[in-house]
Simulated assay, not measured.
Amino acid sequence: MKLSLKPLDQQVIVLTGASSGIGLVTARLAAERGAKLVLAARNADALQQLAEEIRSQGGQAIAVPTDVSSEEAVNHLAAAAIAEFGTFDTWVNNAGVSIFGSTTEVSIPDMRHMFDTVFWGQVYGSRAAVQHFKERGQAGALVNVGSLFGDWPTPVQSTYASAKHALHGWTGALRMELEKEDAPVSVTLVHPGRIDTPYNEHARSYLDKQPSHRGMVYPPEAVGEAILFAAAYPKRDMYVGFQAKAFAVLAPIFPSLTDKVMELWMYPSQHDERPSRSRDDNALYEPGYGLHEHGTHHGWFRSGSLYVKAQERPLLALAAVAGLGLVATALLQQRK
């Protein structure tokens, strides 16, 4: 079945994790493009402020405080969207939190609770969205936000990587089942690279030094762009940053080499040179601070993702590459 999705300015979008980082940026971008928004997160005050901000600028948005680790709460979110707008057209599973610590140090209760949010929260949201799209019989988009660490594991964030691995596998299985039955659902998995959000400040830290991205870091707007493209155009995967695509393609081909690179680079590149926040000062069990788009990283900050642009316009990107090839060939011939 070839699916046709509504333009963004005709859509109702349910967005989890909307109070900060990627979710906050995506909400603002979607509102600018005319979408109606159902905003979900645990931080009720930040969520309400965001909804009021969007309404003050002529948009339409409601705030539905939601802890996605609860299936009942996620089902209530779906019901609230339908009660307010009559339907929803895109469901974005974005809520997440991380833990920085070794595999043998992080407590089992912490691991379980993080899985409740990062994996089970997306499962609950996916099932609610699929049920609605099937019942109404009109195509809708499900967008799950994964991670480059869902394509290849990393030390230091073992629990987060494991939850994202589970999410990637589950999303793929769901997509195949829906395609097999010709269900009216577009399923997209977004693979962000390292993104400049408060993710590091919200994480529970078992480290002596503060969690932080070091190295190439992409803006949350690049992820928001990928999410909203997938909301309007059926797409299997969206990679944010070439680093994310490189991990997905090259790591399975050179697994031992990739492991060695990760062992050398991931330990120093996941923390800053300052004392870590208290282990109790995080958003694992309680809402984190809201309305912040960016974090406190010290990496090489990119202004956007050319790889996202290339995925949005593959023929144009292919033509550009071919053009560069012709130019390079001509220059070589001139030298000869």
Results as ranks from 00 to 15, higher is better:
Y239T: 00
Q57K: 14
N94K: 07
Q60H: 14
M1W: 08
L5G: 07
M266H: 11
D208V: 13
V249T: 06
E71I: 12
M216G: 11
E84L: 05
G86R: 05
S205P: 05
K309W: 05
G290D: 10
T188N: 01
G295Q: 05
P109M: 03
V261I: 15
A330L: 15
G224F: 02
G23C: 02
F133D: 00
L174F: 07
G150M: 10
A226I: 02
E179T: 11
R279A: 02
T188V: 02
G59C: 00
V118N: 05
S126P: 01
P287G: 12
A226D: 09
G169H: 09
A139W: 08
A328W: 07
L306E: 15
H168D: 10
M262T: 11
L29P: 03
I195F: 00
T296C: 01
H76Y: 06
W120L: 15
Q157K: 04
D208L: 09
H271T: 12
S256A: 09
Y239P: 01
W170G: 08
L47E: 03
A283H: 04
G140V: 01
L250R: 07
T171R: 00
H202W: 15
A222K: 02
D208G: 13
V143S: 06
L5K: 08
A83D: 15
E179M: 07
E201C: 10
A129H: 08
L315G: 01
G121N: 07
A283E: 01
A141K: 06
A203C: 12
V92D: 00
I227E: 09
S158Q: 04
I227H: 05
G137W: 10
M176Y: 14
A320K: 12
V118G: 00
Q311G: 06
L189A: 05
G172L: 13
Q333T: 07
P314L: 07
E71G: 14
H132I: 14
R127S: 05
V106S: 06
D151Y: 03
Q333P: 04
Q10V: 11
R194I: 01
A44K: 13
F133V: 03
Q210M: 12
E312N: 15
D67V: 08
L257H: 01
M1T: 09
